[in-house]
Amino acid sequence: MSEQKTVHFIIERQDGPDSKPYTEEFLVPYRPALNVVAALMEIQKKPVTKDGKKTTPVVWECNCLEKVCGACMMVINGKARQACATLVDQIPQPIRLAPARTFPVIRDLQIDRSVMFESLKRIRGWIDVDGSWEVNTAPIQNPYTAATAYEIAHCMTCGCCLEACPNVGPQSDFIGPAPTVQAYLFNLNPLGSFNKDKRLNALMEKGGITSCGNSQNCVQVCPKNIKLTTYLAQLNRDVNKQALKNIFNK
């Protein structure tokens, strides 16, 4: 029998938030349609490095494996993407995995993205309904506007855009493209638009939309193909108008 084909992984590991990173290499048996998560699962079953040294299984986060939950974002061969939707056949080997260091590392490839959820609080990322009880029927919506909203609502808070954005990181307080653009989603909604001013004012604060430097990496790496730069430009228009309102309407 011919020798088993393998896939070579070089994984940047880190035992804890304050530990020093180190790399370990693994050989994983090749299979057609093998993706990065499936390969990490193989390492769980046999946590032995390329040199035959026993080690601990690699820690990472994943849930749905269908590219909707956003959990398994990591840096693969230098770029932020979803590990579950990355087939080993489609990228050059050896495959280098690293945590998205824009965020604090918890362990190995697992990172702490809670800052993104905090940012969603800051932009008031919800519709202010009176309650879940029966009220009126919601207003009808222009189906084209609704389609735009649907596109933005695909954002799964994976953090690819934050990882790729040069203006997001420990050196800056920018909340990043994803939470910023979510503000537009709620402003588009007929009921959500009642709080449009509040959201725009929140975006005008430090770390808000003014921190966007238009590197436009976000739109390139978004796994959901959300036209982030288009909506950022729209929001820029909106905050400029809001600034005039703040000055002249009071």
């Binding site: 230098g78 770029k79 790729a164 040069p166 203006n167 990181g169 050196q171 800056s172 920018f174 921190s211 430097g213 238009n214 590197s215 436009q216 990496n217 390139q220 790496v221």
Partner: peptide, 24 residues
């Protein structure tokens, strides 16, 4: 101050706009 807030990464993400961003 703005320039120092960027962690330029065109080597990693070599898109035209990103090169321009870094060059800026």
């Amino acid at each position: 101050y703005i320039a120092l807030q960027a962690n330029n990464n065109p080597a990693q993400y070599g898109y035209t706009r990103n090169w321009q961003f870094a060059l800026q």
